[in-house]
Design a protein around this nucleic acid. Structure first.
Ligand SMILES: NC(=O)c1ccc[n+]([C@@H]2O[C@H](COP(=O)([O-])OP(=O)(O)OC[C@H]3O[C@@H](n4cnc5c(N)ncnc54)[C@H](O)[C@@H]3O)[C@@H](O)[C@H]2O)c1
Ligand SMILES: NC(=O)c1ccc[n+]([C@@H]2O[C@H](COP(=O)([O-])OP(=O)(O)OC[C@H]3O[C@@H](n4cnc5c(N)ncnc54)[C@H](O)[C@@H]3O)[C@@H](O)[C@H]2O)c1
Lengths: 206, 206
DNA sequence: GCCGGCTTGTGCAAATTTGCACAAGGAGAC
DNA sequence: GTCTCCTTGTGCAAATTTGCACAAGCCGGC
């Protein structure tokens, strides 16, 4: 039931990275991988990986390592990506277009099911294999479809308003590309993808 | 001289977020802001903010808070974004195009100065106000221009190869959009922007 | 069947990170 | 000038996170 107290968020935040690396390893034909091998590929200590994985069960075989297929399957289950999540995209400008056409979501558990924009010139046009819809229809459409995940690719000035709308429509997780912090209820999660933030983190060391 | 031992990376990693929030506050006309006010805007404790900022000097005025302009200026200096950094973009597909046209870099210290691709059909075309160049010219051009920051927007299969090339050309910081971990020398920094990672972090809680 | 070589899972200690709580001090009212 | 209000900067304690080191155990070889 209560998951957060059991598994610290730092651990959860590393799981998708393990999963991605394991899927690469599988593509290379590996059937079994040790925590050391995985650690070297990810620049993470092997102890860290073992401890993280052990919080979910004992998947490893002593002497061999972790069976790749089984571990991928288990991680997908724990991350709840052993299914496909519908996602609603808001803002179909340059970035929104690229996202709508991006093939990388489908393989990894996500499908952009709807796209909305405010601009009448955009509404009705196509992006990827979607037709851009009027933002005013968002609440009803998202509610009816039961969509729980939203992606914001509007200008920063509109992002909070869009976030409010998404929350109202029942969205519980938001991926925000706009360079602004969002204020949302406690039971809604937000992740940020402003490319300038990591750039500035790196220039500190240059 | 030695900065890493002095300022922990967790602290550095929050500075760009403070900076972004302060710039928003300035746009709203604020000239002074308390750690509490800033903390509420960012969902960070005020003590955290005070402690972080105090590592760089005493910018606050007791009873008032922090002068917005001066703090912005100071943070920019510490992050080394009190200047404009040239960036090299590799891979001008859907995402690369959006990045090349993105106006949000210039205001915050970055300028995409060159763009390269491998595809002959792309070379010579324009993206934003850049002309796409042949990847084979990258090493020389980047070296001559002294560019230290690279952005990778190629498919994952090409990313490591591109990273090697960038490092060879003198790049010391890489922003990687491809969904794959890169192996680079110790003195080169990499940050990752795979949108599926934060999505999977959120579905854990859904 | 037994041995040697690896690798897991984990108790414990070290290191890092966060948060509390308060003395010190600036600003404005009067 | 003095009093009150508010906020900073920080010592210290709590909580979290990482890493070490090793007993336990699986596997393949002989
Ligand atoms: N372009 C990039 O490469 C890039 C990279 C990182 C982050 N971003 C951020 O992503 C966001 C979008 O960037 P972009 O370059 O695509 O901008 P854009 O101007 O090309 O597109 C923004 C879109 O949002 C729509 N929009 C505006 N207000 C809206 C509202 N209230 N409801 C619904 N739709 C609305 C606009 O009609 C437009 O189609 C910005 O916040 C930007 O800072 C962009
Ligand atoms: N499109 C998106 O919204 C999006 C979002 C997040 C991440 N990504 C990631 O960003 C990367 C690019 O995505 P995209 O949708 O733009 O793909 P794309 O296929 O449209 O573009 C990739 C570009 O890279 C070029 N390229 C290939 N190999 C190269 C090499 N060795 N050197 C130089 N250029 C090379 C190709 O010619 C092409 O122009 C992918 O790794 C993708 O997973 C894309």
């Amino acid at each position: 039931m209560a998951k957060k107290p059991e598994i610290p968020h730092v651990v959860v935040s590393r799981l998708p990275i393990y999963l991605r690396a394991l899927e690469h390893a599988r593509q290379e034909g590996l059937t079994c991988i040790s925590s050391q091998e995985l650690g070297e590929r990810l620049s993470i200590s092997s102890a860290q990986i073992r401890k993280d994985l052990s919080m979910f069960g004992e998947y490893g075989k002593q002497g061999r390592g972790y069976p790749v297929d089984a571990l991928i399957h288990a991680l997908r289950q724990h991350l709840h990506v052993d299914r496909v999540w519908d996602v609603v995209l808001v803002g179909v400008g340059d970035l929104g277009h690229a996202l709508a056409r991006y093939k990388g979501f489908a393989e990894r558990g996500f499908r952009i099911a709807m796209a909305f924009d405010k601009d009448p010139a955009k509404i009705g046009t196509t992006a990827g294999d979607l037709t851009v819809e009027d933002i005013r229809l968002l609440a009803r459409r998202v509610q009816e479809a039961g969509i729980k995940i939203g992606m914001i690719a509007t200008p920063a000035a509109a992002a909070q308003e869009v976030a409010n709308l998404l929350v109202f429509a029942g969205v519980r997780a938001i991926l925000n590309y706009a360079p602004i912090h969002l204020t949302v209820p406690n039971d809604v999660r937000v992740e940020y993808l402003d490319p300038v933030i990591p750039l500035q983190r790196m220039t500190y060391y240059l």
